[in-house]
Amino acid sequence: MRRNKFAVLIIFTTTITVVACSLPFFAQNSAPPPATQAPVIPPPVEATVFVGLPTPIPPTNTPEAAIVHLMTPSTSPSAGGNIYDVFSKDTAPEKRAPYGDSYKINRLERPFKQDMLYVADMDIVTFNLVEDADWYYISIELIGSDPNNSLGINYGVEIDHDADGFGDTIVWAEPPYTQEWGNSNVQVFEDNNHDTGGLSAELSDAPIDTDGYETLVFDRGLGDDPDLAWVRINAGPKATVQFAFKKALTDGAFMLGVLSDAGLKDVGMLDYNDRFTAEVAGSPIRGNQYYPLGELYLVDNACREAFGFKPSGYEPQLCPRPEKEPKEDTGCDNPSQYGDAGSCVAAGCKWEFPLNTIAVFPPYCTYP
């Protein structure tokens, strides 16, 4: 009987010990709970600021909405008198331009790759301008017939509003081109800080760093006027590339030139002759000390012609005027007096239509 009580006492004592050890005030050797860590706050991230990009245009239409056009150019504008440019077709097999590349005065005849392979689809022959009540139409004739050349050729129209030699506005188009008027591939840029000509209006000031046409005012149908500028191709036997822009883009008196570009294609770098020295740019003229082409290639431009006013002849980048010898007036200076074959009705002089020269329309009268 005493043995059983002793056994019960042992069991009871053991049970109390086990329970007591599991209570919190007996856990003196247990590890303390982990301390609460403060949240890690990352340092502030500085915003990236992009400088030198064209001024953005607030969209006039939501991205989902189609651009609504209220006006489109005529499908059959009248023909205009041609401004002639040098072309390189005849000397291309010799890997050279015949002449017409005057780098110092921004006259570029470079429809060649760096290895002097010729690209006919960007070689300008003529351009002309006509107008109607709402539009100016600029037609560019090329030696080649495929503006959608796989190289990707951009074409442009430069406008000098105040005839000081600095381009003020450029209408700029990129492929693909279609035979119908469209502007989903057309942009219009302006030069608001007057530096497209570098330090001087015409001469090369290379090497300098300016931002050219820095302000985007029309972007593929977006802008204040979704109908501002258009382009199409192969609209006639000679109009390989044709632009149309609203007459409101100018004040009616301006100088205008054209260019093709499959090289740099950067309106922010115009004028290109201010970016590179003649040595770095190279030359397409075989007799030039810097032949062949270097860093400036696949670009062709034409001289600028005056529209809406009579030029003095001293405007920078103006197409040169033919010099007339002082001769006795035979009545041939009136354009109405020349015949279909190019000869004046009055005897004594011949009405010349210069070809493959830097010349202007109308043609001029020469004397035998």
Rank of each mutant, 00 (worst) to 15 (best):
D271E: 12
V157R: 06
S312Y: 04
A347R: 07
D85V: 01
W172Y: 15
C344T: 10
W181P: 08
K246E: 09
S102M: 07
E109K: 13
P43N: 10
L23Y: 10
E46P: 02
G221Q: 04
I11F: 15
N301H: 09
I285V: 05
K310A: 11
S260H: 01
Y177M: 12
I41M: 12
S283N: 07
T17P: 08
E141I: 07
Y118S: 01
D274L: 03
M116K: 08
K265R: 15
C21T: 13
P175E: 13
D146M: 10
V86D: 14
Y213I: 07
E279A: 15
A35M: 14
F87R: 05
T126G: 05
V258G: 07
P93G: 11
A133L: 08
P63W: 14
G144K: 01
T36S: 14
G221I: 00
I153M: 06
P175G: 12
A302V: 02
L318Y: 04
F112G: 00
T178V: 12
D164S: 06
Y314H: 06
A281C: 11
K324F: 11
V217R: 00
F189T: 07
V125Y: 03
D209G: 11
G287I: 11
S30A: 12
K265C: 05
E323V: 14
A244Q: 09
I67M: 08
G52A: 06
C319Y: 12
N185Q: 13
D85S: 14
V217S: 03
M122F: 04
V280N: 07
G165H: 06
D164C: 05
Y84R: 13
F87L: 09
L53M: 11
A239M: 00
G257L: 03
A239F: 08
S74Y: 00
D329K: 08
D209E: 15
N192E: 13
S184F: 10
M269E: 09
P56E: 10
E94H: 14
I159F: 07
T330K: 15
P176D: 13
E305I: 05
Q187Y: 05
T250S: 06
N149C: 03
G348F: 03
A120L: 04
F50G: 02
G287S: 14
L23Q: 13
S150H: 08
L256M: 14
T250P: 04
C21R: 00
L108H: 13
S76C: 05
R220G: 00
